[in-house]
Design a binder for these strands. Structure first.
Lengths: 97, 97
DNA sequence: GAATATAGTTTATGTTACAAACAAGTCTAT
DNA sequence: ATAGACTTGTTTGTAACATAAACTATATTC
């Protein structure tokens, strides 16, 4: 039971929340993530960009009811990374022998 | 299933590993933690200090075989914090509905 | 057409994580 | 007894990070 390194990209509260949401939902726009995470828009914007640059999510910028709309979806790579993170961190949470 | 804030002190790979180890062992010295975590001494020293200042662990500096020996043990407060962290992060790891 | 609202980005700043350099003492061999 | 290597930690310097405030751009309302 070693301490597997934790993906630094996912080991962040907001980014982990984003990915966790997108894994369940498979499609979520900026406001959805904003509301669900309780983040600020600035922080959300930054972290979405980072996840996108890492290839963990895809970002589709379009319009909805005349307003800009940023739709995010998790990628296969993102799912894999999330699953690996979940498996890894469990090694840290074991209290029992 | 909201996203409970994660204790920033525990949401760090090395500190989480330290606390996780001490929860199981109830007594671990510097070298024990060094070996188990695979950390560097510098980083370990810093994080032990932070955990101590937060009251999550107690640090007992003595000597063992003539050499300095830093014995660490988890406090009640540390156990509580760890348990809260474990409960909190599980809210981020749930993939299923 | 001015004011306000929406949707998001850029920037500025303080904080953090980390390892290299340092410090203080101990052992060994000569 | 002292030089050199080892042990056990601490301090410090730097780069990366997290975050919110300030900003941009367009849309709606009055």
């Amino acid at each position: 039971m070693a301490f597997t390194p934790l993906d630094p990209l996912l080991h962040n509260q907001l980014r982990l929340a984003i990915v966790s949401l997108l894994v369940s939902v498979e499609e979520g726009d900026f406001n959805f993530l904003l509301e669900k995470t309780g983040s600020t828009r600035g922080n959300l914007s930054v972290q979405i960009t980072k996840l996108k640059e890492a290839g963990y999510i895809s970002v589709n910028k379009g319009y909805k009811d005349n307003y800009p709309n940023t739709a995010c979806a998790i990628t296969y790579q993102g799912i894999r990374a999330f699953e690996a993170y979940v498996a890894a961190i469990k090694g840290y949470l074991n209290t029992g022998a």
